[in-house]
Design a binder for these strands. Structure first.
Lengths: 206, 206
DNA sequence: GTCTATAGATCGATAGAC
DNA sequence: GTCTATCGATCTATAGAC
């Protein structure tokens, strides 16, 4: 299986897949070499820091992808509700119905967590913040927006675990759909609804 | 640090912690030996099948603990709502606010997943089934009960990921509390509420 | 730049003394 | 039962030829 590797960045997708499949510890240079089609010499030429630098580069690329395709739109979009829907679309396609794991989550669970604490926490913090931001701009109060954002991000991570554990991609889709529905503007009325400002899309019930 | 190891079962808690902390691949026999206070000779005396048998034994013990303390009560309790509350209490103390990871979830995400596919899927399947059962007996319709059960189990797994990633145990507590509230009988008035009471619980086999 | 060869450490697992 | 010694394999990383 020949591969065209012209520069360092071209190796990252293949390396990322190895880390996803085997975890940080389990991803050996032999596996990475096979996936990229490069020998150790070439790998150390691109990544003098060895495996740790490879993982850092992969995490940075993943972070950049999410920043561009999800976090940014969530923060900046004039249509926050649409950005949220797009986020769920991206989540479903990116994680391939739970068949593809979240490398950041995998590292968070493993013993390499402390080594990559900053990129890992930054990724999840910005995800939660950006989603909470969009929820606030779509009319929710600050506190429940943050709570819901945490719940959604956690739920997505858990959906991956569950889908892989059950070997049932449907479990991913069902859970994510439930989360998606929950972020939509609710017609439901709560005790705090009486003091809400002007939420034109909320209507009373009962 | 001396340890009293009289029989095989006494080693399991220490071994489980090593697997939790380092994952299946990362848990070396040297680490397991240090944690148990036993040499490799003793470990192979207790576990002739080596590391794989150690992991199987640990998974079986974890499964047994959850079966006894959570799944069983969820299925059998005369007070399903109370069993659900107890489940959340057990979850919060067992996972220590997300500081302790779920070994079954960790294995589900890693490359050892296929090797332990049966115990891993069985654990999560029985958790979802038992919780759905309790939700049905507490008055919910079958389909939404299953959906909610999946969402709760996934949410707990995700809460562990998020809490560890953010290094914020509070994130675990907040998310789990939100899930707990969601499983309580809702005072909310829905269209189906009037006809749920007389619903037949009998179902066909298979 | 990319390769092979290899160092030095550690891996899982085994053998045998006691 | 528990230990030490040790095997062969594999690990990350480096060195040097080309």
């Amino acid at each position: 299986m020949p591969r065209i590797i012209a520069e360092r960045a071209d190796t990252l997708p293949a390396i990322a897949e190895v880390f996803r499949e085997y975890g940080y510890e389990g991803a050996s240079l032999a596996l990475i070499g096979k996936a990229t089609g490069l020998g150790k010499g070439s790998l150390y030429h691109f990544f003098p820091g060895g495996k740790e630098e490879m993982a850092s580069a992969v995490l940075a690329e993943i972070d950049g992808w999410f920043e561009t395709h999800m976090f940014g739109p969530l923060r900046d979009s004039r249509e926050p509700e649409r950005a949220i829907e797009t986020m769920f679309d991206s989540v479903e396609s990116y994680f391939r119905s739970g068949r593809r794991v979240c490398l950041v989550g995998v590292i968070a669970l493993g013993d390499a967590r402390e080594r990559f604490a900053q990129p890992v926490s930054g990724y999840f913090k910005r995800w939660v913040d950006a989603l909470a931001d969009a929820l606030v701009r779509s009319g929710r109060d600050r506190l429940p927006a943050r709570a819901l954002a945490e719940e959604v991000v956690a739920g997505i991570q858990g959906a991956i675990v569950l889908a892989r554990a059950l070997d049932d991609p449907g479990a991913f889709g069902r859970t994510v759909t439930a989360l998606r529905v929950k972020t939509r503007p609710e017609p439901k009325v709560s005790r705090a609804a009486s003091r809400t400002r002007d939420r034109s899309h909320t209507r009373r019930q009962g």
